[in-house]
């Protein structure tokens, strides 16, 4: 059910320390051997620090507490698909930064689907600021709850 009343609801701010070990592990997992993730000297010289892979901020989705992720309560996680994902970057993010993320329900709407029946779309945005209070990135996710479990 699309519950429009949750639009605009924000979650409890969460901290995301940017740790080199996780960044390296993530770069390996996406098959990216770029030395900027593995050689701190080179990274500092070229960029000013060890950067994070483009999609790295997505990892916060898997450990934030329920009260930091508004909107998910009303959804059946067994019928959820990840429809879209977007990242916008405003300032560099480096290993050693401590980001603060605040999640917000940006939109909820319904559409008639094909295979899965009626679909409910949940759009959430997470705004990240760094330890200096600078807005560094926004992550925007669209999750889709299908009317029934989607078969392959």
């Amino acid at each position: 059910m699309a519950d429009k009343s949750i639009i605009g609801k924000t979650g409890k701010p969460f901290k995301m320390p940017i740790e080199w070990s996780k960044v390296r592990e993530f770069a390996r997992a996406i098959k990216d051997p770029d030395p900027v993730y593995f050689d701190p000297e080179k990274a500092k010289k070229e960029l000013g620090g060890i950067p994070v892979p483009v999609t790295f901020l997505q990892t916060s989705a898997f450990w934030t507490e329920a009260d930091s992720s508004p909107g998910f309560g009303g959804f059946d996680l067994r019928r959820i698909l990840h429809g879209e994902q977007e990242f916008e970057f405003f300032k560099p993010i480096f290993v050693g930064d401590v980001l603060t993320g605040v999640s917000k329900v940006a939109d909820v709407y319904e559409k008639e689907g094909g295979r899965g029946g009626k679909m409910t779309f949940l759009v959430t945005e997470i705004e990240y600021t760094n330890q200096r209070g600078e807005k560094v990135a926004v992550s925007r996710s669209t999750l889709i709850e299908t009317g029934q479990a989607v078969k392959a």
Binding site: K31, D32, V54, Q85
Partner: peptide
Amino acid sequence: GMFTAGLLSKALTDWVGIGNVRQFKV
């Protein structure tokens, strides 16, 4: 999906440089 998106981001950053990405949407 985000594994495959990660592979795609690598193709992009190899070309534009990681420090230059302003937006990435999949």
